[in-house]
Design a protein around this nucleic acid. Structure first.
Length: 814
RNA sequence: GCCGGCGUGGCGGAAUGGUAGACGCGGCGGACUCAAAAUCCGCUAUUCGCGAGGAUGUAGGGGUUCAAGUCCCCUCGCCGGCACCA
């Protein structure tokens, strides 16, 4: 079979698409709302390494989908851009002195070229980079809106600090106690920070997950990350001092079993309530805890530690004096930073009580147990039980099932003014500032008189200044702090001396709203034009990796909701449907990484067998969501398929209907490929086209009516080849603008069906019969076979199941 | 530990509760050729049998059903996420 000149063809069509701007998309009102689609890719960080296999997979999925939709009469917005702020360019700058903007530009150019060489049709007139001044001007503008809405605040609580990246990290960027980016152990550092109040949106971020069509695992991850838990706050008085310690508990029903309290070492009351006798021990413990990293305080500290403060609290339900301890198993950052300990019904409290010999009182017993019947249990229980049951040893609540006790106790606490219903979230506010250079400067100044003052919007963009050294100062300030002429400014409010904020924004900032800017990328007066936004938003399909489940995808939802509340966007969720493409693994089944040496360079394959083959091959590997190990074995089959299509193009094309059986196969193929392309089941669509092309290949000459639809169906998958074949067929207009073929349902039905004859579910015979043969006739035919007779001979027929066009199952007894 | 997802030939993978293994790779046999490559055709789950044919088979065990890869319960394994969040 003829090798086809893919290099020549691919270059030719890429040039034509570029010159003809066939990628261009406009807000054409002729398309009704239901004929518009916004198909979005997670834009890449333009690294020096170039496009990797994952990018190619991601963008092939959406390119096929977009092309398919266009051929079906949709107006499709399918843009591309670059998430180009971030550390690699900055670290390279530190090493070589090259300005990050220079590195970034070079990488972006390389990426764009590689993306074009894959034949991906993006609207390049809408290309953007988060580092463009005209882009980050609006990132700063949105930040100001957040600030004005009271959603940005300064904090000097200890933060996650990466000593290698020399910057603070958000909770979401700490994975197993390590920096998500460089895997250095994260330490704690006290630093003044800007924080975004994402927790104010916790309830809505949680509730609205139900509205979107996203993969269940991602939704679950977001739910877990937000971590809503319902319970009650309860106030305990400190014996003697009158101080109140508020705790959060999800088990108010176990209040009678609270035998001690534990405060986080950082809790504000610790210094105050500690008795003189215990002060030295407490101070020592607090100091040691402060030095520990979060990792040490969790993983390494499963073995409980703690010290007694010498103070006692009064259990509000029974007035019992209970000791107050401090321990680092209680987190300062969750709830109130203090807990009531119920060792009988909480594993952690149990471990702690056992270690330090604290009393344990059982207050819940399994339903129907002896203790439940008695309503009490005088002895310490043999083990901790967290399961629900019936309240015991609990005064007026004794005998109530756990669920009811929770409600009754909360109500009682409220009535007594001792506590109330409360909801807590695991989600923490978003640490938003970075002590690095290559990011958006924060448009704020610090004035001696006026405090923090936002820059007037008219002064945006606040440009990132040139610096001599990109090295972070290490003191926790960004390199910007070393430029007095930039830092020192005037207060926009009072005109007095002021200092600019020297922190920059994290890389996630730019990606929080890029999908909006694509809609109106060059607008100088607004972040996006309202009517254009109404034309496209929300995003219909968003495709990208699952690694952003709680990072970008949560942050972007948060910003979008803020913009929605400010009346600036038309939807409360940005991404209607999300699809995660499965990772492409190395040939060894491991994740691709440079250190493993199992990476794949798409350029090599484009050179060797062409972009079309690479596109089809990656889609043929398996379902798009599945993890797939890279194996070039299958590439051969795809190349053969494309070569066969090419060879078809060399055959004479004739007019006329063609063989009836082939016509049927054509209609079945159009039906299957249409359905599978629409649902992105590309692997089975390709398989069907292979079957059909193999049948056409047997012909000496090709009826146009059988051949053209194949070329059209191939177009989204192997666009260069299809364009060339289309042109050879005599068409002047490009195939990208042609209409998708149609099929007739009536022609998809076979004349004959094979019927399976089963006896007790086991296949004993098969026969051919006309489609739609009535049930009674099928049964009669089935029973007539000698072999079937043998199997049912001398047995009682209990039942016969007949499924039209499918099978006859004779159920016999004995 | 908790929460998800997955488990099908030698391999990648197909299968609205109704013929398990489509399609592709690889392998075997054949055609073409002086020969080879390329291409084309046929076969290719395991097992018993010369054969006709039979038995087994979708991680393992149980269940529902005339019928289960598919639905339900339990177990095991792999992958991902979370993990002292009270």
């Amino acid at each position: 079979m003829a090798k086809y000149p893919f290099t020549e063809i691919e270059k030719k069509w890429q040039r034509r698409w570029d010159e003809g701007k066939s990628y261009r998309v406009l807000e054409d009102p002729k398309f009704p709302k239901e004929k518009r689609r916004y198909v979005l890719d997670m834009f890449p960080y333009p690294s020096g390494a170039g496009l990797h296999a994952g990018h190619v997979e991601n963008y092939t999925i959406t390119d096929i989908y977009s092309r398919y939709l266009r051929m079906n009469g949709f107006n499709v917005l399918h843009p591309m851009g670059f998430d180009a702020f971030g550390l690699p360019a900055e670290n390279y700058a530190i090493k070589t002195g090259t300005h990050p903007a220079v590195t970034t530009q070079a990488n972006v150019d390389k990426f764009r070229e590689q993306i074009k060489s894959m034949g991906f049709l993006y609207d390049w007139d809408r290309e953007l980079s988060t580092t463009d001044v005209e882009y980050y001007k609006w990132t700063q503008w949105i930040f100001l809106q957040l600030y004005k809405a009271g959603l940005a605040y300064e904090s000097d609580k200890p933060i996650n600090w990466c000593p290698s990246c020399k910057t603070g990290l958000a909770n979401e960027e700490v994975v197993d106690g390590e920096c998500e980016r460089c895997h250095t152990k994260v330490t704690r550092k006290k630093l003044r920070q800007w924080v975004l109040k994402i927790t104010a949106y916790a309830d809505r971020l949680l509730a609205d997950i139900d509205k979107v069509d996203w993969p269940e695992p991602i939704k679950q991850m977001q739910r877990n990350w937000i971590g809503r838990s319902e319970g009650a706050t309860v106030r305990f008085a400190v014996d003697g001092t009158g101080d109140l310690i508020e705790v959060f508990t999800t088990r108010p029903d176990t209040l009678f079993g609270a035998t001690y309290m534990v405060l986080a070492p950082e809790h504000a009351l610790v210094p105050k309530i500690t008795s003189a006798a215990h002060r030295a021990a407490v101070d020592g413990y607090v100091e040691a805890a402060a030095r520990k990293s979060d990792l040490e305080r969790t993983d390494l500290a499963k073995d409980k530690s703690g010290v007694f403060t010498g103070a006692y609290a009064l259990n509000p339900v029974n007035g019992k004096r209970i000791p107050i301890w401090i321990s680092d198993y209680v987190l300062a950052s969750y709830g109130t930073g203090a807990i009531m300990a119920v060792p009988a019904h909480d594993g952690r409290d149990w471990d702690f009580a056992k270690k330090f010999g604290l009393p344990i009182i059982q207050v819940v017993a399994p339903e129907g147990s002896v203790e439940a019947k008695l309503g009490s249990c005088p002895d310490e229980p043999p083990a901790c039980t967290e399961a629900d049951g019936v309240a015991i040893n609990s005064g007026q609540f004794t005998g109530m099932p756990t669920g009811e006790t929770k409600k009754a106790m909360t109500k009682w606490l409220e009535a007594q003014g001792l506590g109330k219903l409360a909801v807590n979230y695991k989600l923490r506010d978003w640490l938003f500032s970075r002590q690095r250079y290559w990011g958006e400067p924060m448009p704020l100044v610090h004035c001696e008189k006026c405090g923090v003052v936002p820059l007037p919007e008219s002064e945006l963009p606040l440009l990132l200044p040139e610096v001599k050294s990109y090295e972070p100062s290490g003191t926790g300030e960004s390199p910007l702090a070393n430029i007095p002429e930039w830092v020192n400014t005037k207060c926009p409010t009072c005109g007095g001396p002021a200092r600019r904020e020297t922190n920059t924004m994290p890389q996630w900032a730019g990606s929080c709203w890029y999908y909006l800017r694509y809609i109106d990328p060059r607008n100088p007066g607004s972040f996006v034009d309202r009517s254009k936004m109404d034309y496209w938003m929300p995003v219909d399909l968003y495709v990208g990796g699952a690694e952003h489940a709680v990072l970008h995808l949560l942050y972007a939802r948060f910003w979008h909701k803020v913009l929605f509340d400010l009346g600036l966007v038309n939807s409360d969720e940005p991404f209607t449907r999300l699809v995660n493409q499965g990772q492409i693994l190395g040939t060894d089944g491991q994740r691709m990484s440079k250190s493993r040496g199992n990476t794949v360079n798409p350029d090599d394959y484009i050179a060797e067998c062409g972009a079309d083959a690479l596109r089809v091959f990656i889609m043929f590997m398996g379902p798009i969501e599945a993890e797939k190990p890279w194996s070039t074995a299958g590439l051969t089959g795809v190349v053969r398929f494309l070569e066969r299509c090419w060879a078809l193009g060399e055959k004479p094309v004739v007019e006329g209907a063609g063989d009836a059986a082939l016509v049927k196969l054509l209609h079945k193929t159009v039906k299957k490929v249409s359905a599978d392309s629409g649902t992105m089941n590309y692997n089975t669509a390709i398989s069907q086209m292979m079957v059909y092309s193999a049948e056409l290949a047997r012909l000496e000459s090709l009826p146009r009516s059988l051949y053209e639809p194949l070329v059209l169906m191939v177009a989204p998958y192997a666009p260069h080849l299809a364009e060339e074949l289309w042109e050879k067929l005599g068409h002047k207009d490009g195939i990208a603008a042609a209409s998708w073929p149609t099929y007739e349902e009536a022609l998809c039905v076979d004349d004959e069906k094979e019927i399976v004859v089963q006896v007790n579910g086991k296949i004993r015979e098969r026969f051919q019969t006309a489609s739609g043969t009535p049930e009674a006739e099928l049964e009669a035919k089935a029973r007539a076979f000698p072999k079937v007779q043998e199997w049912i001979a001398g047995k009682e027929i209990a039942k016969v199941i007949v499924v039209k066009d499918k099978l006859v199952n004779i159920v016999v007894k004995g």
